[in-house]
Simulated assay, not measured.
Amino acid sequence: MYLKYVLICCILFSIQANSQLLEHDKDFRAADSLLKESSFSVHRDNYFLTGVPLDTDITRNTADVKYQVSFKQRLSSKPLLGGFFPYLMYTQKAFWDIYANSKPFSEINFNPGFAIVRPFYLKGGRLTYGTISLEHESNGRDSIYSRTWNMLAFSLKSQISPRWTVGLRGWIPLVDKDDNPELTQYVGYGEASASYQIKPGRWSADVLFRKGSGLINYGSLQTQVNWRPYKNQNYYFTLQWFVGYTESLIDYKEHKSMLRLGFVLKPENMGIF
């Protein structure tokens, strides 16, 4: 079952090894793409969104707020063996029933991790990040409401043109099947992402597709369109649509379709994955 992930790992290190054949100045500029960013920086999108369901009635209990806080800390300004840079990462995603009478948080998901990142150039001068990460994700609850899993992940993210950035990510899930039956069927074993600059500096679009382990079942699709009102500011207004499973861990078996509107802070560069 894990053979394909071993192959992904081999491909990742093969690309890393081949990249070392590039001339030294290109290697330097690839590493400089990480070093020009502050050591403490935005990891994934940081956002605050409010929205309504598209697949059920809109009520005070089905509309909600979703927000995410995500950051990373580069641990060294000098690469480790093999040209890898070490990072600590943390992402927290919350679902807030702000329109309900008592305004409770229905779910909070915690996602800390450690990663090593290798910047390099593919043929044609395409900046690429190869990443190996060990991550934990849980909702911090106990008993029948506990949801938790770990992953060993491998990813490649590349700026294939001035407007397009694409990424592929696969993982080996490590799940306590007694507490989380069938979770791997829903979180799957990988995802693909793409970002397109519709009007550079103003309009952009993002797509994130996660495939569940079933042949046609499970998985999810998240798309969003972003508008940047000021070129010298790093925040956007965004319209996001999520459809599928595992938007939150507590309801990973429930199919959802949510349309949300709000604002987002994005990484200054393309992000490590």
Rank of each mutant, 00 (worst) to 15 (best):
Y2A: 12
L3N: 13
K4H: 13
C9R: 07
L12P: 02
F13C: 07
S14W: 12
L21Y: 08
E23S: 14
K26P: 00
L34F: 01
K36F: 09
R44C: 01
R44H: 14
F48G: 01
G51E: 00
D55K: 04
D57V: 05
V65I: 14
V69Y: 09
G83V: 07
Y87F: 15
M89N: 12
D97M: 08
F114E: 01
V117I: 14
F120G: 11
Y121P: 00
Y121S: 06
Y121R: 01
L122V: 00
L122A: 09
T128L: 04
I132E: 07
S133N: 08
H136F: 06
E137N: 09
S138W: 04
R141I: 02
A153G: 11
A153V: 01
S158Q: 03
L168T: 10
L174V: 12
V175K: 06
Y186K: 00
E191D: 14
A194K: 03
A194P: 01
G201H: 10
V207D: 00
L208E: 08
K211Q: 14
G214S: 15
L215Q: 12
W227L: 11
R228W: 10
F237H: 09
L239F: 07
Y245E: 03
T246G: 01
E247A: 04
I250Y: 06
K253Y: 05
K253E: 12
L261V: 15
L261D: 05
K266A: 02
E268F: 13
